[in-house]
């Protein structure tokens, strides 16, 4: 097996008396789609925050493609190739959908010429194609403010994909979305990940989504990874069914 894309070693963090991570060792392998499941408040989102430098662990190390990124800023980590989509979509409210993506492309390509119009960047065609890929081609000129939640989630994911990341971290891609729309979003996501050859880690509550779309599942409970393996195997484990799924 090749070197993992992302490695965490003995990650520790606590907030007051709550231990979110106590010795987390998790490897993300290139090409996989890893789902992280666990009870509410277990620290799954904290894990994404730790990996992207939003918060620093009190101990432990995060390595991305062999480089230690533990103390780096979200900005620096993003530039190294880790993009993030949020549970609550983080969009630029004053811009259209296409402009949101173009800003991402401009930062990615470092277009800082003050006389170069955002609207006519060379990446425009690429961004329109990306919008088509996520099924939002018709929304290009819509202000993001008016979009329903499901579409906002897709745009948030598209912004992350626009950065051409090696690794995409998604926080509950289907939360806040009507159940009928859930699989549509995940189909689009899976298709995009395959097309762009992006490795992905997603935090998820919906076990059906996990079963269908993850290539591996890691269970996060009481600050540790308690199980890790193929979805069918992990999701049928009695401990997991009792502690996480609540069956």
């Amino acid at each position: 097996m090749s070197q993992p894309l992302l490695e965490t070693r003995d990650l520790q963090i606590q907030f007051g008396g709550v231990v979110a991570a106590s010795g987390v060792n998790l490897d993300v392998i290139e090409g996989e789609t890893l789902a992280i499941i666990g009870p509410n408040g277990a620290g799954k989102t904290t894990f994404l925050n730790l990996c992207t430098g939003y918060i620093k662990p009190s101990a432990g190390r995060v390595t991305f493609r062999g480089a230690d990124i533990t103390a780096r800023s979200p900005r620096a980590i993003t530039r190294l190739g880790i993009a993030r989509a949020f549970q609550i979509p983080q969009l630029f409210a004053e811009h259209t959908v296409l402009e949101n993506l173009l800003l991402a492309a401009a930062v990615r390509d470092r277009v800082w010429n003050p006389f170069r119009r955002l609207a006519t960047l060379p990446a425009r065609g690429e961004m329109l194609a990306l919008l088509d890929l996520v099924g939002a081609g018709d929304l290009a000129d819509q202000p993001v403010e008016v979009l329903p939640e499901g579409r906002r989630k897709l745009v948030d994911i598209a912004i992350a994909l626009a950065l051409k990341p090696r690794l995409l971290l998604l926080d509950e891609p289907t939360s806040g979305v009507a159940s009928a729309e859930k699989f549509q979003i995940m189909d689009i996501l899976a298709n995009a990940l395959a097309r762009e050859r992006v490795t992905a880690v997603f935090v998820e509550h919906d076990m059906e989504v996990v079963r269908r779309y993850a290539s591996r599942v890691a269970v996060w409970n009481t600050g540790k990874i308690t199980h890790s393996g193929p979805p069918d195997e992990v999701l049928s484990d009695p401990d997991v069914r009792r502690d996480v799924i609540g069956l």
Binding site: P74, R75, R79, R84, H95, L103, A104, R108, I159, L163
Partner: peptide, 15 residues
């Protein structure tokens, strides 16, 4: 305008 509307996302674009 992005600074005004969402600094978090701007940082997560790498800027």
């Amino acid at each position: 305008a992005a600074v005004k509307s969402n600094e978090t996302r701007l940082e997560y674009l790498g800027m």
